[in-house]
């Protein structure tokens, strides 16, 4: 029987999730995720056409607060765990090509 999710789909989901997977992980996940997705089919035994989706188990109300300034993290605290920083910034590789005209 065809797997619920094949290696190409695993690759595509990994791209969406920003995860680099090895070939052996891709093979393994295709099998394991297919087994789990197969199991999820169990939910189709239930007719839910008349059921409202429930995003939160208890009644959730909008919570507002006054728009007043409050203390927040200092720049040093916010940057304290940065893997790389430059002055008061998080440092990352160049995002735009020199030729991109940006």
């Amino acid at each position: 029987m065809a797997q619920k999710i094949d290696v190409e789909q695993v690759r595509s989901v990994a791209r969406l999730a920003r995860l680099e997977l090895s070939e052996s992980e891709i093979e393994q996940f295709a099998g394991q995720l297919s087994a789990v997705l197969e199991y999820f089919e169990k939910l189709n035994e239930l007719d839910t056409s008349q059921v409202e989706p429930l995003a939160h188990c208890l009644p959730i109300h909008n919570v507002f607060r006054d728009d007043t300034p409050q203390a927040s993290l200092s720049t040093e605290e916010a940057l304290g765990n940065a893997p790389q920083r430059s002055a008061d910034y998080f440092k990352v590789p160049k995002i735009l090509d020199d030729a991109s005209g940006a």
Binding site: I5, V10, L19, L21, L43, L46, V51
Partner: peptide, 28 residues
């Protein structure tokens, strides 16, 4: 990694209704 993959799949275009939305209804 497995759970990130499963969750990303369940929320991805074309599968959202079959998995995530169905899950919310069963939660009800």
């Amino acid at each position: 990694k497995r759970r990130i993959m499963l969750g990303t799949y369940a929320l991805s275009s074309g599968y959202y209704d079959a998995y995530y939305l169905k899950g919310l209804k069963v939660r009800q």
